[in-house]
Write a protein that binds this DNA or RNA. Structure first.
Lengths: 149, 149
DNA sequence: GGCTTATGGTTACATTTGCAACTGATATAG
DNA sequence: CTATATCAGTTGCAAATGTAACCATAAGCC
């Protein structure tokens, strides 16, 4: 008679799987905010958010910070330029790289979106107690640190 | 004189962004395990894992459980069939759908991979205290539940 | 200096993905 | 019944993505 071995892997509790579904769902929900208003996708939003906070910054550094492939950054920057959101100045210390920053229009979009995005994250977390939020945050920090090794 | 407004959005603490980077990093690290051994990618691995645990199951149900688009499931199943990992039986209650299950070869791959995947997740989490692990798990549950609404 | 190697960024090409349309089958309304 | 709507799954096509090659510049080395 065949006995069913206990499954060595319970998918519904498997962290990588759960994280992926969660990240995808959160990203999709958030994207509604910026896609509806400005017609931009995830990579463009990411670049915009980086520029809002860190400009002037090079494409390289955006990629390094956000773990985006350099071609993805390059194309997102291109699209944002096309939209008139981003301006590039050539660096005077290294003529390969360009210092990116926001135009007035890009700044306006950022100033519109950033608080909405922050609200979104707040609402998402508002079921959790402060302690749970801290626990989640610190767990993410530790996992990220572990991956970096 | 211009004063810098406090940023309304601190990216390094922004949950959607952090989740995305974490999920991507975890997935990439895990994928080494199954890619190196069987040359399969994320969608194929996901389908394999579902079949290992829930077979016989339809492609539709795999998609519903794992939030994969039906075309992605369809192609992953096709690839797993090509590899000789998956067999399809037609359902006798509904001839549109196919009941998928693993061949001996597919089962062997699953039995090889599943414990490795489980180990991977355990190692990933072994820095965290049990309390932290539970907090993380419950936070993910709540966020997923919130998204589902 | 000149030569090799590495780097920021873009582009070409192949692969992957998602959407829309389709096929064959089932459910449902009248 | 039968006509219409719905559904499981596949396929065509377009958009998005990653890899590799490339260009221009910079850095390291002799």
């Amino acid at each position: 008679m065949s006995t069913r071995r206990p499954s060595p892997l319970d998918l519904d509790r498997f962290l990588p799987y759960r994280l992926d579904i969660l990240a995808e769902g959160v990203s999709r929900a958030l994207s509604r905010i910026y896609y509806e208003r400005y017609g931009i996708g995830v990579p463009e939003w990411r670049v915009l958010a980086h520029l809002g906070q860190y400009a002037p910054i090079t494409a390289r550094d955006i990629g390094a910070r956000s773990r985006m492939h350099k071609t993805k950054v390059s194309r997102a920057v291109g699209e944002l330029e096309r939209l008139g959101f981003v301006r590039r100045m050539e660096s005077d210390t290294d003529r390969r790289e360009a210092l990116l920053s926001l135009t007035a229009k890009g700044r306006a979009a950022y100033d519109d979106l950033a608080p909405r995005a922050a609200d979104f994250a707040r609402q998402l977390l508002d079921d959790l107690t402060t302690a749970e939020q801290r626990a989640l945050d610190s767990a993410i920090d530790r996992l990220l640190a572990k991956l970096a090794r």
